[in-house]
Simulated scan of single mutants.
Amino acid sequence: MIQQIHPHTELGHVKLKVSNLERSISFYRGVIGLQLLKRNDKTAEFTADGMHPLLLIEEIPNAVVLPERSAAGLYHFAILLPNRKELGLTLKNLLSSHIEIGQGDHLVSEALYLSDPDQNGIEIYRDRPREGWNRDDEGNYVMGTEPVDIAGLLEEAGDREWKGLPPETKIGHVHFHVRDLREAKDFYHSVLGFGIAGDYRFMSALFVSAGGYHHHIGLNVWAGQGAPFAPAEAAGMAYYTVLLPNQAELENTIYKLKSSGHAPRRKEGAWFVKDPASGVDIRLAVK
């Protein structure tokens, strides 16, 4: 019997590898709207509330920017805004930045898509109220990719001035290319205990979550079955954080990993384990 992960489990900060620190600092401040919390010669931390890190970046010597969908690893990380008005304000700023923007109304959410200077994928989105989310006969959340009401978003923003991301901003989900969906399902569902939010075989994707969310982790094989892991010197995601609600839940998760043959390691006051399907590290900590 699968032991479900605690329903109050959430995601914490993510860490990215970049090729040029100064360029990335300028992008994440001016385009995305994060505040610089601290920096040194090779790393920088960003925040939305002025206190807690939301994003870390590290400049990698001789970093390689991989072609799109050429390796397992980051597809995008998703920044969750507290309401539609903030998404409209973000859209206004993105339009003024003259960068390429994608968009999708996923029924459970409205989302904008872009990439940073190293082609790290970013989604910025707002959720619709949970009572309006629907499931199909197999228990999968009904999602789609319809056009976003751009005019409505801009109307929501009105004449308000964009002042960066609001303090309530958080990491909503992460989405990865993986080498095998069965391997990913076994790790995230059978071992870690994330619930199946959407088993979308028709699109070669799997969404898993804690507490009935539409997805905390998206997994796909759009880079190809058996896709190689990204090399260490490639730009991409170094790790993302899974936050357990208390120490007992963290210890239980570490026990499940060790019992299933995975090898979590202690580092920098937290536990780390490698996702066997994407090759990305997961940082496990208490909220």
Rank of each mutant, 00 (worst) to 15 (best):
G211K: 11
E183Q: 15
N93R: 15
D137N: 05
L16Y: 06
F194W: 03
A277F: 06
A285L: 00
S19L: 03
A78P: 02
K92N: 14
A238Q: 12
F194V: 05
T43R: 09
A232Q: 12
N140K: 09
W222P: 07
P231T: 03
Y200D: 14
Y125R: 13
T253W: 00
Q119M: 10
L56Q: 13
E131F: 14
K170C: 01
L284E: 03
E233G: 00
N120M: 01
R128Q: 10
A223W: 05
Q225R: 13
N93K: 15
A111T: 13
S109H: 11
V191Y: 02
L80W: 03
L284R: 04
G121V: 01
A263Q: 15
R126N: 10
L94E: 03
L192K: 02
I2D: 00
N40K: 01
I5T: 11
G139N: 07
G226I: 07
G152L: 04
G261E: 02
L154K: 08
K38R: 15
K38S: 13
G88H: 03
D186R: 15
Y125V: 07
V142Q: 11
L16G: 05
L91E: 05
V208I: 15
M143T: 15
G195W: 02
Q225T: 07
P129F: 15
Q4K: 12
I32W: 01
L56D: 06
K256Y: 04
G144A: 10
G172N: 09
V174M: 10
S109M: 09
I282E: 00
I99E: 05
V191A: 01
K287M: 13
S96F: 07
K185Y: 09
P276Y: 07
I57A: 02
A232T: 13
S70I: 04
D118M: 06
K163I: 14
E123T: 00
R128W: 08
H175N: 13
I101W: 11
V280I: 14
L219M: 04
L55H: 01
T169S: 11
K38G: 04
K17V: 03
E110R: 14
L284I: 11
R130Q: 09
G104R: 12
P231C: 09
H52Y: 13
H173Q: 10
W162V: 05
Y28Q: 03
Y75I: 02
K256P: 02
V108A: 08
S96C: 05
V273M: 12
S260L: 01
R29P: 01
G212H: 07
E68M: 10
L87K: 00
V64N: 07
E161I: 13
T43P: 02
A263G: 10
H76F: 09
R160W: 06
V242E: 00
A72N: 02
L36C: 05
A223N: 05
